[in-house]
Design a protein around this nucleic acid. Structure first.
Lengths: 320, 320
DNA sequence: TCTTGCTCTGAAACGCGTTTCATAAACTAA
DNA sequence: TTAGTTTATGAAACGCGTTTCAGAGCAAGA
């Protein structure tokens, strides 16, 4: 396998000049450039990427940590990240953690080893102090409010948007409001729970633990929710659902059971996923693809750190 | 950042000895080994992985090409691959192609650049001759019959298993049999189509183009299938469905519409995914996790190439 | 006692592209 | 014409761990 030295010799130039041609450096005369290109062609030259990595001290690989890559929420996020990665000539290494600590640690270890230039954590399971330990090895970008730290992030104000959603339902006359979340634990869930409590307090509404549904991730989880609701003597009149996917599942079940939406049960989703549009679900749009783009940009941004809060937008359709 | 030289100096040994300690070479005396470990600790030494890659000429990274990582079929395959990768201390780079040629080419380019040691293609879109061009750069392992070539593969005899499934339905008395596939094009679809034609011929059954359903990938695609079937004057009595996921979707719809399974419509799935067990779907088990393991083993197996055919197993449950 | 064969260690070569520094030539502005 | 840029190019240093080769020391077997 020919290397840069061979090519240099064949073209009658120094390796530095070959390197310049390889990297499109402007200061190379046309004739030498042509000679180098010819030599590369002849020798069937292939740049040794590992030598480049060693020399540059970077790999153009960015790690992305997600709990599930199959979920539309993360799917859209990944899409945004991948778009930007392509544009900037980076590749992605995907870590699907299933919320297992070890998988997350693997990703952090790769950052430490400089096998990836930066790490984007879309949703974490590890405690924050553990993440912090790895900050010195390379940029880590997350999806939660990191204001006051030097960690970059792009995030949604989950407290504010949840509160906003509750206010909207309240303004529509709903008083018995329940909500569906994914994980019971986790930074975002905490924020939403707090928003809910504060909302109840504001309007002097009583807390009903039956109105809280956890482990709502996918379409099929909607059925479980509706099963519980139909068994209740005093069911909620509206549901705030942290994922359109689940909202769609609930809505589908409602149709099957001839439950009128929104009259018997109002549904307010989150994300504005494609399925929400198709099924006419009222939702709070979260521009996930755009968030993905920003996360990537932050991952490769040099020196500085930045925190960006993303606004959500209410999309009124027919389920509230 | 300390390097191996610094550590060697601190420990009073040569870099070779430090390298031996790092790589658990047996011939290092206990005291020197201890000294090296102490020095590494003190210097907060971190091995530069890119230097290792350059030196070894490999990266311990294996590329995995799938069309969708969110589909249970590929999810299980990936699980098997990932298990084995973990065991053998390799990392995976996942390429989700969405069946776009460019994404597949990206993966092949990384193989060419030796940024990955091998490539596992779970389902391809590129023509075979294009894949072949990259064989000289590193091992490529695929999921289709490559007997007679020097390409390693682990595959299911799709012709045989489809035929077997059709025979089973026939033996149960079904004559009007339809089938659902994913892609219309693709090596596996061709095989299955041929099996179907041959089956019809064998039993002198007429071909009905309405009994063929394409683009059946996910749970929700089951609804489309059933919609078409309910509109037919002369619907199929049994369906052979190339994914349990779709079979589950169809079965769910049947329940909603009070259609008796298998009396009004028999369903025979493929894969034996978890959902098939839960929903009691008769299916042909494909040991996807096991196939994943084998694919990975083949990817890192030195020198030789091997082709392994995997047997499927009929699991009789309650939908036929 | 002499081989033979381990065990242990270090020097040096190797993998290979990037980048800095020095230098020379060519050009521009004063 | 002189000073100051800009363009162009090569030598050499740099990033850093692995591996081969040679040799020393020591023990077991002949």
């Amino acid at each position: 396998m020919a290397n840069i030295k061979d090519v240099a010799q064949m073209a009658g130039v120094s390796v530095a000049t070959v390197s310049r041609v390889l990297n499109h450096h402007p200061y190379v005369s046309e004739d030498k450039k042509a000679a180098v290109l010819r030599a590369m062609e002849q020798a069937n030259y292939n740049r040794n990427i590992n030598a480049v990595h060693l020399s540059k001290g970077q790999t153009n690989l960015i790690g992305v940590v997600v709990p599930f890559s199959n979920h539309p929420y993360f799917g859209l996020l990944i899409e945004g990240i991948a778009n930007e990665a392509l544009r900037q000539n980076y590749k992605l290494v995907l870590f699907q953690t299933n919320y297992e600590t070890d998988r997350e640690l693997e990703a952090l270890a790769m950052l430490k080893d400089k096998q990836i230039d930066a790490l984007i954590i879309c949703s974490r399971i590890s405690p924050w102090h553990l993440i912090e330990e790895y900050l010195s090895y390379g940029p880590i970008v997350v999806c939660e409010n990191t204001r006051g730290t030097n960690v970059s992030s792009t995030f949604v104000d989950h407290y504010g948007s949840f509160f906003q959603a509750l206010e909207y339902l309240h303004s529509k006359g709903y008083r018995k409001i329940g909500y569906c979340l994914g994980r019971e634990m986790g930074a975002n869930s905490d924020l939403r729970r707090t928003a809910y409590q504060d909302f109840l307090q504001k309007y002097k509404l009583a807390f009903n633990p039956n109105f809280v549904f956890y482990n709502c991730f996918n379409f099929e989880d909607g059925e479980h929710v509706l099963n519980r609701i139909t068994e209740m003597e005093s069911p909620p009149a509206a549901l705030l659902i942290s994922s359109d996917q689940v909202a769609a599942g609930i809505l589908t079940c409602c149709k099957v059971r001839d439950m009128a939406v929104p009259d018997q049960l109002a549904l307010l989703g989150f994300d504005n996923q494609p399925i929400a549009k198709i099924m006419n679900i009222t939702t709070l749009e979260i521009p996930l693809v755009e968030i993905g783009r920003k996360l990537f940009a932050q991952a490769i941004e040099e020196g500085i750190s930045s925190q960006e809060e993303i606004a959500v937008k209410l999309i009124e359709r027919q389920t509230v």
